[in-house]
């Protein structure tokens, strides 16, 4: 996915994406919630998170490259955006669900597919040992299939 779609998708998972249409551009602050389309993007002002992923290159006719570099992994693992949205997503999926059902729904919400039985077993085993569903969401956000559309 291109960088704007990555950011919007992370916010959307937690139902925190502000879908307001129109208006002026916004500063690229890490706590911005509007769609990435409205985030300022110039030589001097650029969102650091967006810049880590495949962003339009303002110095090369707005073309994009496809990249897989370790800095992206660090942004997904450590950015405030990814961490806060991981915390907020479990309540959207359903607090009252059992671990297995939660894992299946989390897989579908984050990766848009059902887990295989092995994958489901990994997730429920994880929650049994670490009863923290935000950690599971965070791990799924870091899954290759979140960034990559097959």
């Amino acid at each position: 996915m291109e960088s704007q779609a990555v950011r919007d998708a992370i916010l959307h998972l937690a139902c925190r994406l502000d879908l307001t249409q129109g208006g002026s551009s916004i500063d690229p602050r890490p706590d911005a919630r509007r769609r990435s389309l409205y985030v300022k993007h110039s030589r001097d002002e650029q969102s650091l998170f967006l810049a880590m992923f495949d962003d339009a290159d303002i110095l090369a006719c707005y073309r994009r490259n496809e990249s897989v570099v370790p800095q992206q992994a660090l942004a997904m693992a450590n950015s405030r955006l990814a961490l806060e949205m991981s915390e907020a997503t479990p309540s959207v999926i359903g607090e009252q669900l059992g671990d297995q059902e939660f894992s299946g729904k989390a897989f579908q919400r984050v990766l848009c597919r059902r887990p295989t039985s092995d994958e489901l077993a990994e997730c429920t085993e994880f929650l049994k040992q670490i009863p923290n569903r935000a950690r599971l969401i965070h791990a799924l956000l870091n899954h290759n299939d979140f960034l990559m559309i097959r």
Binding site: P30, L48, M52, Q71, L74, A75, A77, N78, S79, R80, L83, E84, E119, E122, C123, F126, I130, N132, R135, L136, H138, A139, L140, N142, H143
Partner: peptide, 25 residues
């Protein structure tokens, strides 16, 4: 490096667990 440390309350232990699960998946 940019984003070299967790920008929030996540211990090294938490991070390692998430990372390992991502790796297995």
């Amino acid at each position: 490096l940019n984003f070299a440390k967790p920008q929030g309350n996540m211990s090294a232990e938490d991070q390692w667990q998430s990372f390992q699960l991502t790796g297995r998946l």
